[in-house]
Design a binder for these strands. Sequence first.
RNA 1: GGGCAAGUGGUGGAAUGGCAUACACGCAGGACUUAAAAUCCUGUGACUGCAAGGUCGUGAGGGUUCGACUCCCUCCUUGCCCACCA
Length: 826
Amino acid sequence: MPYTTHEIKRIEKKWQKFWDENKTFKAVISNQKPKYYVLEMFPYPSGKIHMGHVRNYTIVDVISRFKMMQGFNVMHPMGYDAFGQPAENAAIKRKIDPGEWTYSCIAQMRDELKQMGFSYDWGRELATCDPQYYKWNQWIFIKMFERGLAYKKASAVNWCSSCETTLANEEVVNDACWRCKTPVIQKDLEQWYLKITDYSERLLNDLKVLDKWPARVIAMQENWIGKSYGVDIYFKEKETGARIDVFTTRADTIFGATYVVLAPEHPLVDKLIKGNKDEKHIRAFIEEIKSTSKSDRISGGLKKKGIFTGRFAINPVNKEAVPIWIADYVLMEYGTGAIMAVPTHDERDFLFAKEHNLPKRIVIQDPKRPDLKVEDMTEAYIDEGNLINSLQFNGLNNTKAIEEIGKWMEKTGIGKISVHWRLRDWLISRQRYWGTPIPIVYCDKCGIVPVPEKDLPVELPKNIKITGEGGSPLNHVKDFVNVKCPKCGKTARRETDTMATFFDSSWYFLRYCSAKNDKEVFNKEEAGYWMPVDQYIGGIEHAILHLLYSRFFTKFFKDLGLIKFDEPFTRLLTQGMVLKDGEVMSKSRGNTVDPDTIIEHYGSDSLRLFILFAAPPEDQLEWNDNAIDGSWRFLNRIWNLAENCYKKDAGTNLPKDMDTHDKELERMRNVTIKKVTEDLSDGLKFNTAISSVMILVNAIDKYKFSDDNSYKQAVLNDAITSAVLLLAPFTPHLCEELWQMMGKNDKTISFVSWPKFDENAIKQDLMQVVVQVNGKLRGKFDVACEITEEALKEIILKDSKIQEYLQGKTLRKLIYVPGKLINLVV
RNA sequence: GGGCAAGUGGUGGAAUGGCAUACACGCAGGACUUAAAAUCCUGUGACUGCAAGGUCGUGAGGGUUCGACUCCCUCCUUGCCCACCA
């Protein structure tokens, strides 16, 4: 029977049913085997899986199955990141309940995942919209609230007018909503924040430990956390003496500060401009800047808007009075919201000073142009040099001066060495229905009261009208909003905001360890056994948000004493996107290929094999409709070998009288085992692992169909057996079936020991030595492996062809790389 | 503007200081067939040559080295991330 579409369907269904019924991949704590926790980033349950999912989960599945065969106790769970806006949008559009819609999508998705043959422990399946899950979101929130890590603050927030909700900084992409691309505006609202900034230092420092993460992700996180060393310098307003702190990383240029600039939102602005004859004008200017969106503020390019306050500040190092300006290029959110401007040594300051005719003074000498005058400068000098016009610091190299001046300022009390971070606290309030209710009650008497643990979960009310307009739908649900204060029992009001869904996904990997536990967030012992995740795999788009939040939560759990480790994911792989015709495959582009139709025709094994073979996992993968044929053809060849060439009764012992052909196949078999084992262990190089199995299969074919048909069945059987085992993680349905067909006694191939290789069998009798003349390839010689350098030289130098290249030239040098090559330098 | 990747046949890719293009796709030719599909075999970087062979060739240019796709410098292109961050 050939490996036809019909047969493929039968086999794949058969084994999917087998794994399901036997709970083959159920993970149980055991001290007999080392544990291995392998995890994909769980999907949003949109219903259908797409090629990106297929790629992600296939990569994880191969690792999972490989580790099982290697004797690890593997946990490989699956769940759904099930809260969020698409369900609400669907509810509005189709007038159905978001929960109903979500659960039907989950059901469909589960079927599609099972169709791919992934080795999940379905007993740990979870959905974040399940009250048994989000109950623990609420529990975590309360623990954070108790420790001051969850707090409420009124502030200007990023607001998406289309989604009618606030967005975290991380959700603002190019000043637009990350989901719907609507431009983000600023709006004042009372919002819940998580104090992730308390963990800035740890989040930054522990990146050093993550040596098995892609350098790119580390760099992105470092960038995002943005630690900046500098000095806060205390300027004073000339008349009132009010302190104006400016933050600078360039304390070396303090003597060149010729004006001070405040952000329009700076709290001192109001006082400074009060009574100014131009007050109205200035206020109008400030309002204008505040009303411009951030992107418009930037799109003005280098042209910077500013206005003079009419006031002066005293530079503490030289008592000079410098004008105080307000300008759009100074941001309240960063540093102290005020800067000292050094036009001669900062590009932005230079342009601003030029625009508004402000004074400049050179304090770092360009060694190439020591006579340079301020009037002749066309741009700021931002490179190294020695200090001038800087009193006692004159002559000092500016890099050194940064340190020296900082120390001096701290000593004399005119400033302090400080650190500022780019990382902001995490805004988690959402004015949405389909999310975890924030477990807080507002009481006129008691204030903000957390819901007691025994009353959790605060369940989302059902049968809610969702219109997509007018803020949170929960506002309109009286039974939900009106509540008794848990403290005093008087009438109180429930919080109607829900949590950002990134909250849900920041700890789900811990929940998998105790997925059905209704007593605790997770069990200490279980998490202690399985965690941290040994291998985590997902898209690069989560390099900052999800991965940073998960690290934050993990550190928080450690502080609660629930776990003993600092980092959740030991090893991270960010898989590349799936492209079609050079563009990312996506619904909006209309260039998707539905995995279903491929499976329908070729089966999921062919799809799995193709998607791993076509590119290394980190790289982009260009979908090719034709190339999958190749994967199917290859599986067909394996099928034929196992069905027609494997003989059950041939015995397993290799014959004693092996000739060179037998030995060569046996060597190839060992080489392949070694190569596949190494490729799967370290670099996760699935594409080259598969190609090496293809090479083995080519060799088996050659051996089997050799001219004299003198093959030995035990050698052949051995090679076919190894090929099937090596392929088992990649194409599990086929290999299960073949294993059975070949009469092996195991119930499933999933736990059959990974084949071992013998270094001795890999050794060759002859080795090929490449001969170069002046680095150019001029000959190849097959010689015995144990040949001495002297004997080898003799053979080569006597060779007539090599002689030709040496004629009339003197041999200057001979480089011998043992076992590889000889380079003759003439 | 800053940071990080990457650039190799017609295509996906392999080789990370030592034989460039493994493996596969595609294409061409052949076998089998009444025919087609499937399968199998052969060939397939460019130029040159009847051939053996020779020359060139990993985005461009330079450098280090006996030897460079690989390391270093400069530049170009593409992708991603960050971005008035003081």
